[in-house]
Design a protein around this nucleic acid. Structure first.
Length: 685
DNA sequence: TTAGGGTTAG
């Protein structure tokens, strides 16, 4: 009785008393073991089970004992013990019991031993729907989708009716793989069948909607869930899981405000670590990364501890903001808490996020140190570091990482080659980029995809080899994607090629007429060529299409937090000093040879931005602010949401000659390190 | 006895 009410200690007392009198039977032993399993004390349960079977008590485990202990083995992946229990079940013929058989299949699956699971499943004489579900679930969770669907079809052939568990497992399997369309399709088929979805089905479905960004179906599912809630009394845990899945779905579908409404409807007591994680992750990726950081610090002041998932999301926010100081603080937090708090098993994930964070916050050397300290590096670790060197224009080092990766026995795949080409492109290593592109299929069996072509267009385009770009695009075995045309258009902007630019813009508008960058780039090309009529034609077209240029924004992490600037921004309290210093800097660099490139003053199509003069660009304001507030000699880190303006880039080179700071700028595609009149991009900006 | 929510590299 005590055991069933969850009072393990009381149950144990009774058990011990009976023990002394020698009257405990299998039933009482089972109750104790079951109570430990229920309360999550798996190791104690396993110990008790071991004592029971030690032979000293003259007892033998029965069906209930096995059904108790097998899931416990699975939950802590105690494969050896699980195998022993299986042997015992075999010897005692208890494995013929369908409950025991199901538990054996499930145990092997949870231990990741799929072959053994399938073997145990195959020799079961009387399978029930639970047996099939155990196997379908096993395949679903191990990512073996073909096997999962095969079994699912076999169920249909054998006329075993799928129940809600089967359907939910199949939906979840697809969702986890990111196959949202297939998951939704299964849900439609489920609706046609007799099985009614429950909360778990809906949660799996929301996860599919989240990966797909399918807001409409997500909302439908939300409505389903409300009906489901009204019809059934659910426990609070189930409600919270649903709310967490809803927050995640809304955020990933780009509707952060609805996600926030659900998040805020939860009381601090109700929410758990997942609620915080999905909200922080949602803001970090799809909303305001500053809000994500705010939420994270709010969380640290509360009672819910972040785990590795939360940390990864917070690091993503730092990466996006270029918030090196916050990133370092989180790194320190991880170091303080990595022992015994559930971080071990997912440390690799966190470490890979740290590599990304340090690279994107401008400190790729720190990323290298994190990388060096990882004992069991995986392909993501190598790729993240390579990307880091690539975006800092340190192509040689990126290629050394590529060599190291292969020496470590990892096989390059399409992502590896994308990163290699990207690194070559950002370091001006044109010939080597071409060589890798030409050999990736021949030597490594990786066929170039559209994104690799886009990278090559970028590589050749930045180098001004526009004729070769045209040939490359003509020879593409697939339709050119929008990124291909954007890369070409950008190259036409740099090399002032109006005709080709127009052609690229036309192709791009056919594919995606809503992308504001197309209009801006084309307008810049016309402005540069002095074709003012065309400039106003583009402006009119934008108005007609309801397209607004995203405003350029630059920010800098100062002593007292982050300061951000738009073009012509005068909202900062130190605005007057900032403009004064900027005017002084411009005057001084003009003396040593800076000439404003006025074509960039027409960079902005937006009316408000047009008013801004060249020296009011957001990156120049951010730099002036940073110089004003930093200690001499300290590096200055600026982040810009769009592409670095060419005139600003030129001005920064001159300014770096006259100030005692290294200036590190991250724009939408890469880093620029300015030191004493040079930039790390060597013209490939 | 089977099923459910959150994380990394382009």
């Amino acid at each position: 009785m005590y055991a069933r009410c969850g009072k393990v200690e009381d149950a144990l007392k009774v058990f011990d008393e009976s023990s002394q009198r020698g009257v405990n039977d299998v039933v009482s032993w089972n109750s104790i073991v079951g109570a430990y399993v229920q309360s999550g004390e798996v190791n104690r349960a396993l110990k008790m089970f071991g004592r029971m079977n030690s032979g000293g008590f003259g007892l033998q485990a029965d069906v209930v004992s096995l059904v108790n202990i097998l899931p416990a083995c699975g939950s802590i992946k105690a494969a050896m013990l699980g195998k022993q229990v299986h042997c015992y079940a075999f010897r005692s013929c208890l494995f013929e019991d369908v409950f025991v058989g199901n538990a054996i299949v499930d145990m092997y699956a949870k231990c990741g031993m799929m072959r053994e699971a399938k073997k145990a499943f195959d020799i079961m004489d009387d399978k029930d729907v639970v047996s099939w579900n155990a196997m379908v679930t096993a395949y679903s969770q191990s990512g073996s989708f073909d096997d999962m669907m095969h079994l699912f079809e076999e169920m249909k052939e054998k006329k075993i009716e799928s129940n809600v568990v089967t359907w939910s497992a199949v939906i979840a399997g697809y969702a986890q793989r990111g196959l949202g369309v297939e998951a939704l399709d299964v849900f439609r088929r489920m609706q046609l069948s007799r099985a009614a979805p429950n909360m778990i089905t809906l949660v799996s479905l929301l996860s599919a909607c989240a990966t797909l960004g399918a807001l409409l179906v997500g909302k439908e599912t939300h409505a389903h869930a409300i009906r489901c809630l009204m019809n059934n009394r659910n426990d609070r845990g189930e409600d919270l899981t649903l709310n967490n899945a809803l927050i995640d779905m809304y955020a990933k579908c780009g509707n952060v405000s609805d996600a926030r409404i659900i998040f805020q409807s939860l009381s601090l007591k109700e929410m758990n670590v997942v609620s915080w994680t999905v909200m922080i992750g949602g803001c970090a990726q799809f909303g305001d990364a500053n809000e994500a950081m705010g939420l994270f610090s709010q969380m640290l002041h509360g009672t819910t501890r972040p785990n590795a998932y939360t940390i990864s999301c917070a690091l993503m926010a730092c990466s996006r903001l270029g918030a090196l100081r916050s990133g370092k603080e989180i790194h320190a937090y991880v170091m303080r808490n990595c022992n015994g708090n559930g971080f071990e098993s997912v440390m690799l994930y966190v470490a890979n996020c740290l590599i990304d964070m340090y690279s994107k916050c401008g400190n790729v050397d720190a990323a290298q140190i994190v990388f060096d300290n990882i004992l069991n590096k995986n392909d993501v670790s190598w790729t993240a570091l390579m990307t880091g060197y690539g975006m800092h224009g340190r192509g040689e080092e990126a290629l050394q990482v590529f060599d190291g990766m292969q020496k470590a026995g990892l096989v390059p795949d399409e992502i590896t080659f994308l990163v290699v080409l990207y690194a070559c492109s950002h370091s001006g290593m044109v010939e080597r980029g071409i060589k890798y592109f030409n050999t990736m299929q021949r030597d490594y069996g990786v066929a170039p995809m559209s994104k690799h072509y886009a990278c090559m267009v970028d590589l050749l385009g930045r180098a001004g080899r526009l004729d070769e770009v045209v040939e490359l695009i003509k020879g593409m075995p697939m339709k050119a994607s929008p990124i291909v045309w954007v890369s070409l258009l950008s190259a036409c902007r740099i090399y002032a090629n109006v005709e080709l630019g127009e052609y690229a813009a036309e192709r791009l508008l056919e594919l995606d007429s809503k992308y504001d960058g197309t209009y801006t780039l084309l307008s810049n090309i016309y402005a540069n060529a002095g074709r003012w009529k065309d400039v106003s034609r583009i402006r009119l077209l934008m108005r007609k299409m309801g397209i607004k240029k995203r405003p350029g924004c630059s920010w800098v992490q100062g002593e007292k937090g982050t300061a951000s600037f738009f073009v012509g921004d005068r909202s900062h309290p130190q605005s007057e000093q900032i403009y004064e210093l900027l005017a002084d800097l411009i005057q001084r660099i003009t003396i040593i040879g800076y000439v404003p490139e006025t074509s960039f003053s027409l960079h902005d199509v937006d009316e408000e931005e047009k008013k801004g003069l060249l020296y009011e660009h957001s990156e120049k304001l951010a730099l002036a602010y940073a110089i004003l507030t930093s200690t001499p000699g300290a590096p200055i880190r600026i982040t810009k949401n769009l592409r670095f303006c060419g005139d600003c880039h030129n001005a920064f080179i001159f300014i770096s000659m006259i100030v005692d700071h290294e200036i590190i700028v991250r724009d939408s595609s890469r880093f620029h390190h300015f030191r004493k009149g040079t930039c790390s991009c060597r013209g490939y900006w």
